[in-house]
Design a protein around this nucleic acid. Structure first.
Lengths: 217, 217
DNA sequence: CCATGATGTGAACTCTAGTTCATTTCTTTA
DNA sequence: TAAAGAAATGAACTAGAGTTCACATCATGG
């Protein structure tokens, strides 16, 4: 026998793996999934394209792991925020603040993780993330409803509304290629918080809406 | 001289063009942009692949025109709704209802038009659509503010919040083509309206939020 | 320091889909 | 009906990206 993997080598392999994941994450953060070709990922990681396949069986698996990691991290941060002391709606407000702040800083990556369509393997991981958001926000709303602080509602749909209201103002400017200054970031956070907080607090039964055309897209 | 285009031929050419656009729209509605390959579009339209290029210079231009047409149609419908009689917030509620109803009916097509990423040429057309939504909603909010019905706010950001709150709950179900039951569609519409209406009506100054971690996605 | 197996390499292969173009078919009019 | 130009065709070309693999390089232990 003349070769056995030593711990030093094992460490290097693990590091390489992390490098590849980091490279993929960086490229996705810069230009979305489309920009993260295997060749580009390899170049970013400083290795040959073939080497990527020593660590991941396919591009889909690599992306899935990037998304899985991001989801774990994001949901952990939000769960912790949601588990703090205080009334449910204050905690929900804090969750919104944390989400928006983090998403503003990681704009493109956040958009890719949450909204950009890719192949089914990756889509399955995204589901975990989205369901995680819905679970955290939904639980806080349910708690507020149980307390009698706010009237009952469909918290599953409302959770999606909150996620959308948080994300959309962030990606619009992104598509327009605008760069955001700190003051704009502050305005953004303030306005989104106001919007979400108001949406949860007000009790408005839906009025009958005037007849409207029923066509389709 | 031995040939000159006659009106009958011109008509047939125009019809072919419409056929191609309709075929592309149908395929996108069925399986998103990915399903609308030139070969598939040609087959759907009953012509050869090469023929498509006698009518459109490139696939991007074809898609852009499909999106442009859809955007024009959608914005026209919403503008008309927004221009009806009644208080601004009631009209805004109607606009939300019309948008959500049409998007649910158009399912996959709506999702593709609003959210699915494609190349920059097409993205530019999408921007017109999203900005159109923001413009219509923003104008109605401004009117409500001018009336004194609701307190002043940053209507540009709030308009994006509304768009997000309308779209996000639809994306999951629409991507999967899952909004089949009437009750589900009704729930979606009702909850989204409630969310948006409440968000606009309540006046909640933002409380100070407890310190929270400032990391990024 | 060599034998051995693991690891790294990147050119080549494959697959898919957009685009082109030489040829065929059709339309018109003299 | 024949000439001439327009339109349609679809096979071939091209481009880009994921994946493979024969070979090179490196690390280990006798």
């Amino acid at each position: 026998m003349a070769y056995r993997r030593t711990t030093a080598v094992a460490q290097r392999l693990a590091d390489n793996r992390d490098q590849i994941l980091a490279a993929a994450r960086a490229l996705i953060a810069r230009g979305g999934f489309a920009a993260a070709t295997i060749a580009a990922v390899a170049a970013e990681a400083g290795i040959a394209t073939g080497t990527v396949y020593r660590y991941f069986p396919s591009k889909a698996e690599l992306f899935a792991e990037v998304l899985r990691d991001a989801a774990r991290r994001e949901l952990a941060v939000l769960s912790e925020t949601a588990a703090a002391d205080g009334p449910p709606l204050a905690r929900l407000d804090a969750v919104v603040s944390v989400f928006v702040t983090r998403a503003i800083r990681g704009q493109r990556l956040a958009h890719a993780m949450i909204a950009e369509p890719v192949d089914p393997t990756v889509e399955a991981e995204r589901l975990v993330l989205r369901e995680g958001y819905a679970r955290i926000l939904g639980a806080l709303m349910d708690a507020a409803i149980a307390e009698g602080t706010i009237p009952p509602r469909n918290t599953e749909i409302a959770a999606d509304c909150i996620v959308g209201a948080m994300i959309e103002p962030l990606i619009g400017p992104l598509a327009k290629g605008k760069v955001r200054k700190k003051t704009q970031a502050d305005d953004l956070l303030a306005e989104i918080r106001r919007f979400v907080n108001a949406a949860l607090r007000a009790d408005t039964a839906n009025a009958n809406v005037l007849d409207f055309p029923k066509g389709e897209f």
